[in-house]
Design a protein around this nucleic acid. Structure first.
Lengths: 262, 262
DNA sequence: CGTTATCTTGACCGTCGTCAAACAGGGTGG
DNA sequence: CCACCCTGTTTGACGACGGTCAAGATAACG
C-alpha cells in the first residue's frame, strides 16, 4: 500500500492510504515547472510542498489517471506521458506530451467531465493530490492559481502550434518540428550538436502526434538521418545539424514561452 | 472618439478616451458565456458589469487586437472572430472561432508575448477592458478568476477536438465536424432541421480551420448538399439531416462542456 | 533463447493539392 | 440602372504526397 514518499508496489492504481501533509521535496519538480512561466514566492513554494499527496508508479502502457476518479489530480515526478483522444473507429491523436513537474489534469478543477486519456510513455512516478486540497490552495493563494493558469496557457499555446503543424505543414516539417520541440523542452541550455537526447517515442506515437502513419514517419526519419541532420540509436537522438532541422521545421521556440529563451 | 457605450467612428483602432466604470449592461454577453461553464453569483456579475471599458467597432478583415498593446483585453459583444497562426511562407491555420461574450486574449493576463492574431469574420462590436482592471478583479474575486479559467479550459478542450479532426479524419468528416460544432455553439436549444443558421465563413476559412484547400472544401460541401444532408444559401446553412451529419463527422458535443447539453 | 513489439523497405493506390478557367454575387461609381 | 469590379464559388484535368498492404529485418524483453 503506497504512502507518502514510498513507491506503490501493486498494480498501477492509486490505493487508498493515509495522506500526510508534512513538507517534503517530492513535489519540487512542480515548482521548477511553474517558475518557467510565473513568479512563485518562497511562501507559495512551501504551501505547494506541504500539499498532501500519494506517490505511485505507473508502468509504460498504462493510464496516469482514471476518469472515474476526479477527486485526485496527478503530477508527473519522473518519466514522460502523453495526452490523447481517439475517434470512434480507433484512430488516435496525441495532442500533447508531458514532462516531470506538470500537472496533467488541472482541468478537473474546473470542468465536470474528462473526455480524453493520459498515458505513460515510459515508466512514470506520479504524485496524486486530492482535488479538494488543491482547490483550497487555489482559493487561498491566488498567486498559485495564477501560476497554474499560466502553465495551462502555455499548454494552449503549444496546442495552437501543433495545430499549425498538423494542418498546414508537410510530413517532413511536422516530424522535424516535433523533434525540435522536444529538444528545446528537454535541454534547458541550448542544443549541443553532439549531445544525446533521450526521446522515448515510437514512430507510431510520433505519427499519432503529427497526423501521419508510422510508416511514413519512418520514411521521413530515414531521410533526415541519411542527410546527416540527425542520428538515432534507440531512443537516443543526436541533433547533428540543429540549425538545418529548425529550418526544415519552420521552428521558433517563442510559442513555448520559456522566459530565459525569449 | 469612442466612449462608454458609443461606437467608435474612425478607423478600427482603439482611440484614447476617458474610461468610465459606471455599471452598464454592455458586458452582459460575457456573463452569459461564463455561466455556460461556471457559477457566477450576482455579486460577481455586478463586479464584471462595473468594469471600465471602451466600446469599438471593427470591420471585417481587421484584427481585433494589437500585439503591441497588451494593456487591453478584448471581449466580443457582437459578431464572429477567429484566431489564427501562419507559417513562414504564409500558410494559415485557424485554431479557434469566437462568438459574442468571449474574451479573446485572456492569455495576456498570464503570458508576456502574444504569438498569433485574431481577426473579425464579420463586423464586430468589441469592448476593450484595461488589463490592469481585469487583473485587479481577478485577484480580488477568485470566483471570477475560476470562471474565466473554466472558459479557457473549454477552449483547450475544443483545441484538442479540432486536433483530432485535422490529424485523424478525412476531409468529409472534418468539414462536417466543423459545421456540427458551429450549429451546437450557435443554437442553444437543439438543432431544428429546417432552421437557418448564420455561418459567415468562406470556404477558404473553413479550409484554413480544418487543414484543407478551399477547393477541396468546395467539393466536400457540394457532395453534402447533393446528398441532401444540408442546404446552403450564402451564409445561411440549414441542417436537413442532422443525425446523418453528426454521424459523418463522428461528432459528440461532450467536448464543448455545455452544462445543459451533457 | 524464443516471443513480441518496433522498425524498415517496396509496390501500389487514393485522397487531396495544384493549376487554370469560368461563373455568381454584392458593392461601388458612373 | 447598368457596367465594372472584387471576392468568393464551382468545375475539370492532372499529379504528388502520403496511406495501405505485405513481408522481412532488428531490437527489446522476459
Amino acid at each position: 500500500m503506497p504512502y507518502l514518499g514510498m513507491r506503490a508496489t501493486g498494480p498501477a492504481f492509486l490505493q487508498e492510504s493515509a495522506l500526510s501533509s508534512s513538507s517534503s521535496i517530492a513535489l519540487a519538480p512542480m515548482i521548477a515547472k511553474l517558475r518557467l512561466h510565473a513568479e512563485v514566492s518562497d511562501d507559495d513554494r512551501d504551501a505547494i510542498l506541504g500539499l498532501p499527496y500519494v506517490f505511485r508508479s505507473v508502468d509504460k502502457p498504462r493510464s496516469l489517471i482514471r476518469n472515474n476518479r476526479p477527486e485526485y489530480c496527478a503530477i508527473i515526478l519522473k518519466g514522460f506521458a502523453f495526452r490523447h483522444k481517439t475517434t470512434r473507429d480507433g484512430l488516435r491523436q496525441i495532442v500533447s506530451f508531458h514532462t516531470p513537474g506538470q500537472m496533467v489534469n488541472i482541468q478537473q478543477l474546473f470542468l465536470k467531465s474528462f473526455d480524453h486519456d493520459i498515458q505513460a510513455m515510459t515508466k512514470c512516478e506520479v504524485a496524486t493530490i486530492p482535488t479538494a486540497a488543491l482547490q483550497h490552495l487555489a482559493l487561498s493563494r491566488v498567486s498559485i492559481t495564477m501560476a497554474l493558469v499560466a502553465q495551462t496557457m502555455v499548454e494552449s499555446s503549444i496546442y495552437r502550434q501543433l495545430m499549425l503543424n498538423v494542418g498546414r505543414r508537410d510530413a517532413r516539417a511536422r516530424v522535424a518540428h516535433l523533434l525540435c520541440e522536444f529538444a528545446v523542452r528537454l535541454g534547458d541550455e541550448g542544443i549541443a550538436p553532439g549531445r544525446a537526447y533521450y526521446i522515448p517515442m515510437t514512430q507510431q506515437q510520433i505519427g499519432d502526434a503529427v497526423g501521419l502513419t508510422s510508416i511514413h514517419v519512418n520514411r521521413v526519419l530515414r531521410a533526415l538521418i541519411n542527410e546527416g541532420v540527425l542520428s538515432k540509436k534507440g531512443s537516443e537522438v543526436r541533433f547533428l545539424k540543429w540549425e538545418k532541422l529548425q529550418d526544415i521545421a519552420g521552428f521558433n521556440s517563442r510559442y513555448l514561452h520559456i522566459a530565459n529563451l525569449v
